[in-house]
């Protein structure tokens, strides 16, 4: 896939950084403000999709990116499972038990394990959407080469 003109490339470069920071903010502040893992993860995926659409890439490089995104997806969901299973062993023996100290309501470091779940599932959602998008693009490229 060919990229677009240099003006579009530069604007996409500048915008995607800001969108990325906004997505990370929404994921990290998920327990205080509207948003959370699912919203922030999709915004992060949107930033990457903007970059891919603007710059284009070789099929081989896209394949490498796809391997990375599907790996991080699997690792993130594995981390969620481990964190939930530790709750089964600690404290009141309940799956998904919130065993970390709660802190005061309204501060950034509070709500026990909720922010960690948010970050892990944010990575998982972003990686899943990027994987789907990359799979569609690679399929299209391979059909054109044939």
């Amino acid at each position: 896939m060919k990229g677009l003109t240099p003006i579009v490339k530069k604007v996409a470069q500048l915008m995607s950084g800001i969108i990325c920071i906004y997505g990370i903010y929404i994921v990290v502040h998920g327990h205080l403000t509207p948003g959370g893992a699912f919203a922030g993860g999709i915004i992060l995926a949107g930033a990457f999709i903007l970059l891919i659409l603007a710059f284009g890439s070789e099929v081989i490089k896209l394949r490498k990116e796809e391997t990375g995104s599907s790996m991080s997806e699997s690792i993130a969901i594995l981390g969620t499972l481990i964190l939930a299973t530790v709750g089964l062993l600690v404290g009141s023996k309940v799956f998904f038990h919130n065993y970390l100290p709660k802190g005061t309501i309204g501060e950034l470091v509070s709500a026990g394990a909720v922010p960690i779940y948010n970050i892990l599932i944010g990575i998982e959602v972003a990686a899943a959407i990027i994987t789907i998008f990359l799979a569609l693009i690679i399929f299209k490229e391979e059909e054109e080469q044939r």
Binding site: F38, G41, I42, V125, A128, I129, I132, A135, L136, F139
Partner: peptide, 15 residues
């Protein structure tokens, strides 16, 4: 959660 699942399933139908 269901909204995000909807995106993934409709992408799968399109695939």
């Amino acid at each position: 959660t269901a909204i995000v699942i909807g995106l993934a399933t409709s992408a799968m139908l399109l695939a």
